[in-house]
């Protein structure tokens, strides 16, 4: 299997990927209007303010939508997998994969609670994946 396609952080996104490597899901929010947003950028997309801060998010959310890809990309293995979007407790949506869960419509129920789980891919990059919250 070829190595997984990985992100190349830019100066504007470095804090996010550093956080993932250190086991924290880091979001940004505007200190003027308090809105949380994603993906990272050095200003608030709602009000345009440059007064924004990075903070540690809860890592909690719900499964918002997905498809189950039946034709796996070579770097993703050979079994069908869900390309999912979670809606974070703080508001933003984020594409991800759902782990520790069968990749079936029966197991992948919309609105089920999920929690972040970091998957180390290289010395620099860990991907934020999400697992169902048990019980």
């Amino acid at each position: 299997m070829p190595p997984r396609m990985l992100p190349e952080p830019t100066p504007e996104t470095r804090h996010f990927w550093d956080g993932c490597r250190e086991g924290e899901l880091r979001l940004q929010r505007c200190t003027s209007c308090q809105d949380s947003y994603f993906p990272p950028r050095p200003f608030c997309p709602h009000c345009g303010s440059r007064d924004v801060e990075v903070y540690k998010a809860s890592g909690e959310g719900v499964l918002w939508s997905y498809v189950i890809n039946q034709r796996p990309r070579p770097d993703m293995g050979t079994e069908p997998y869900a390309i999912a979007v979670v809606k974070l407790a703080e508001g933003p949506t984020m594409m991800t994969n759902i782990v520790d869960c069968p990749q079936t419509p029966e197991a992948l129920q919309l609105d089920m609670p999920v929690k972040v789980s970091f998957s180390k891919q290289s010395d620099d990059i860990s991907l934020p994946l999400f697992a169902p919250v048990k019980g």
Binding site: R4, M5, P7, N69
Partner: peptide, 8 residues
């Protein structure tokens, strides 16, 4: 960075 790593 934020979509392709998840396999589209």
């Amino acid at each position: 960075q934020f979509e392709m790593p998840y396999g589209p």
